[in-house]
């Protein structure tokens, strides 16, 4: 089976029923996406499938027909993505476990809505849970990234 992840083609030998997250972490050693709940209720495993955020724990690899982007793919040239930079500037992460998923959803939001309101941020981010409660800093970082994008 062929799988394109972060611009690179991989040949993998797996059952089509295997969740994409399993393939990424266990077969390809791409460890940015995290296992949280396993049933698409927490968002820690969020990756892009053809540019749309998906919960990779609940997508079987057999369903994947397009390109996969993980958080590792946000900086193909080694430069920090503006959302990642905003996360550092706002010191968002506490334990950090959910943050790869948070950042992927934030990137998807900003691509669709470059300058989101608080409500639009909540509407996008409510499916990404953070047990440390970093939500105020997540919101601040998204606004910072939006400002950085506007100024770029």
């Amino acid at each position: 089976m062929k799988l394109n992840v972060n611009g690179r083609d991989h040949d993998i030998e797996v059952e089509p029923e295997m969740p994409l997250l399993w393939v990424l972490r266990d077969k390809l050693s791409i460890l940015g996406p995290k296992f949280g709940c396993g049933i698409a209720q927490c968002g820690a495993c969020t990756v892009f499938l053809d540019g749309e955020p998906v919960r990779s724990c609940s997508v079987t690899v057999g369903e994947v027909s397009g390109a996969v982007t993980t958080i590792e793919g946000l900086m193909p040239d080694g430069r920090m993505h503006p959302v990642q930079q905003a996360w550092i500037d706002e010191q968002v992460a506490q334990c950090g476990y959910c943050q790869a998923g948070q950042i992927m959803t934030a990137v998807a939001l900003l691509e669709a809505i470059p300058n989101p309101s608080d409500e639009e941020i909540d509407n996008a981010m409510s499916g990404n849970l953070c047990r440390c409660g970093t939500y105020p800093r997540i919101r601040a970082a998204i606004k910072r990234a939006a400002s950085a994008n506007a100024g770029a």
Binding site: E52, P53, A108, L109, E120, N123, A124, M125, G127
Partner: peptide, 12 residues
Amino acid sequence: NAGMRCVTCHQQ
């Protein structure tokens, strides 16, 4: 909504 589409969780 942007960032949380139905397809984010509901696949084929």
